[in-house]
Write a protein that binds this DNA or RNA. Structure first.
Lengths: 237, 237
DNA sequence: CTCCTCTCGATACACTGTATTGGCAATATA
DNA sequence: TATATTGCCAATACAGTGTATCGAGAGGAG
């Protein structure tokens, strides 16, 4: 039980006061620079050297404000949470959809977010505030029991993580190859087509040629609908 | 439309023949070494230098067999697909569950997998075979239309990506802190408890104190059930 | 004005993926 | 068997990374 207690987490550690005037730095400025950089050039471009350069500072100067690069990443995630509007709506389904769309929008706007959202939530102040608002809205919209609310949110956010990651991955692949989905299916695949031509993969062939082609948003909504239907069913069951 | 055509992808490029005898190398041996290393020490430990060292070779020797590190990662993913048993079952729900459990098991066994499974599928031979088997089993189990089958698989795999990532993230966090979930909730959070003590976050407090505590498997099954229920409903609708 | 403390820049280290180069060993030819 | 040729592989090099360490210099206190 040490780590956590030894060095207080970034959320508890106060920002150091600044005594010197020139080119005032702050966590907020650092995080903003990092977010901007990540939006523009991807998460890999976020190196302490580059972020510092963006702020006309040496790399080591950042260590007055953040303890480690991972902390900077945590702060970036929380900064995004601060942008997401609190879920709203009258029925619980509406609230759930609002929650989902908020996360998805943020995830598509900041494509690096999905890479940083792994398991356990980071629980920065903005994330906590957003979570509180989500739970509150769900209860106000009709979900009474806390267990039901938590199940709903947990399942939703699991789906969301996967969906955003999938969509972002597709976008990246498109950009990397300069091809959109349809072109990709026909062009990427000398080897796929060759495989299919053997006749050993009839279902894959059929899927490729005959299946309806939904775009990313439609797929997202479809899955979201399934999930909400399933949850609703469990409510009345 | 260049990249793809210019240099054939790793799936098409044949393995080079070996002429010299001592310490014979092969893609398979390289990939196995990389997978073993990733399983044991995490994806970050998979550097070309370390993989090569594991095989008593210099780093540059690997470039006879793989074109780039990313290709090695692709091969690793495909190697995992080769381990996943083809989904089976009599009803489509059973098949879907089998599919889901196969992926989840693989993802938990190779914790790095979730990090490599982003958007578009990699379509290595094993992945294609597994996909074909999945689609075939679903049709045999009662799902006729290809659109239905594809929707089911897509939605499922989106949920799976999120779920595996979540679980893996939790495991990592546990290992990093030496705490399990419950301990974590009470220990990690001087600052969380402090926030909650203010009374500004009643829902979060309630969630933390009163909500039922499901383990990872239960949560996974719950969400999977919701999803399947939602899909089933759309079938009869 | 002097002393002390704190902050920041420079430097250094171990590590990454991979381009380049040159020597050596195995094979093909005479 | 002697020679020519091929092609693989190790060594080296480079531009990056996060961050530990250290020394200089500036701000505030007495």
């Amino acid at each position: 039980m040490r780590q956590v207690a030894d060095t207080p987490s970034i959320w508890e550690r106060p920002e150091p006061p600044q005594r010197r005037a020139p080119s005032p730095l702050s966590r907020e400025r650092i995080v903003r620079a990092a977010v901007t950089l990540a939006d523009a050039e991807g998460l890999d471009a976020v190196s302490l050297r580059k972020v510092a350069a963006e702020l006309d500072a040496g790399p080591m100067r950042l260590y007055r404000y953040i303890g480690t690069k991972d902390e900077l990443l945590d702060l970036m995630v929380d900064a995004v949470y601060a942008e997401i509007p609190p879920p709203a709506g009258s029925g619980w389904r509406e609230v759930a959809r609002s929650y989902a769309h908020g996360i998805r929008t943020a995830g598509l706007q900041h494509e690096w977010l999905a890479d940083l959202l792994d398991g356990r939530p980071r629980f920065g102040p903005a994330a906590v505030t957003h979570a509180e608002a989500t739970l509150t809205a769900l209860r106000a919209a009709g979900l009474r029991e806390i267990d039901t609310i938590m199940s709903t949110v947990e399942v939703l956010s699991t789906y969301l993580r996967g969906a955003v990651r999938t969509e972002v991955g597709e976008r990246r692949a498109e950009r990397a190859s300069g091809l959109d989905e349809r072109e990709w299916q026909h062009a990427m695949a000398p080897h796929l087509l060759a495989m299919f031509a053997t006749g050993d993969y009839p279902m894959m062939s059929e899927a490729m040629h005959d299946a309806e082609h939904r775009d990313a948003t439609e797929r997202f909504e479809l899955g979201l609908g399934y999930l909400l239907d399933g949850i609703e069913q469990s409510l009345s069951g």
